[in-house]
């Protein structure tokens, strides 16, 4: 077992633990911190998977921006009235077997045989390589992503922005 594999196993275990902690923690704030932890771990895994640029983006966008927003909203919303002791709804009883069954099936699928991993080409996933292809071959999609962002902005303004006037 080389170090690469060991680090994968360690990081994978950490990610699973973080996710479970998020699922089971009573308080939203704890869950959010667990999720943040999972994302940081994932960022490390990306780096190991020859995707340094994605690892950086994961840190900046996910851990930096999105999780910040989530934590911000968790602190912002005051949930005094809610019963925080009863965190799981009644459908847990049905949901857990269903999800477990699905997982088992998918694992069975995986066991059927997966193409083996080869050695990636040189400079694979470097920023230079990545951006060159992104901005030449996928320029249109890249631009369309900006349209999606714009739509998001408009949507948020529509939802929150004109509250006073609509009355």
């Amino acid at each position: 077992m080389d170090t690469l594999n060991v680090s994968f196993y360690v990081l994978g275990a950490l990610a699973v633990l973080g996710a479970l902690s998020m699922l089971l923690s009573r308080q939203p704030m704890r869950a959010a911190v667990s999720l943040l932890f999972v994302m940081l771990v994932l960022s490390g895994m990306y780096a190991l998977l020859s995707a340094p640029f994605m690892a950086v983006l994961q840190l900046i966008i996910y851990a930096g921006a999105i999780m910040t927003l989530i934590i911000f909203i968790v602190t912002l919303v005051d949930v005094k009235g809610d019963d925080l002791h009863k965190v799981f709804s009644q459908i847990t009883l049905f949901a857990v077997p269903a999800v477990l069954g699905l997982s088992v099936l998918i694992i069975l699928h995986i066991m059927q045989g997966i193409p083996a991993a080869g050695q990636p080409p040189a400079e694979f996933g470097s920023v230079k390589n990545f951006t060159r292809i992104l901005l030449s071959q996928y320029a249109l999609q890249f631009e369309l992503a900006s349209v999606l962002l714009l739509v998001g902005i408009v949507g948020i303004s529509a939802l929150r922005g004109k509250k006073e006037e609509s009355k």
């Binding site: 479970l20 965190v87 477990l100």
Partner: peptide
């Protein structure tokens, strides 16, 4: 790992009662 993460996420969506969760 990816599968477990996904399924944990699904379970969270299914069984947690808090919208933020």
């Amino acid at each position: 790992v990816s599968l477990i993460l996904f399924m944990v996420g699904t379970l969270t969506v299914l069984i947690r009662r808090n919208i933020l969760m």
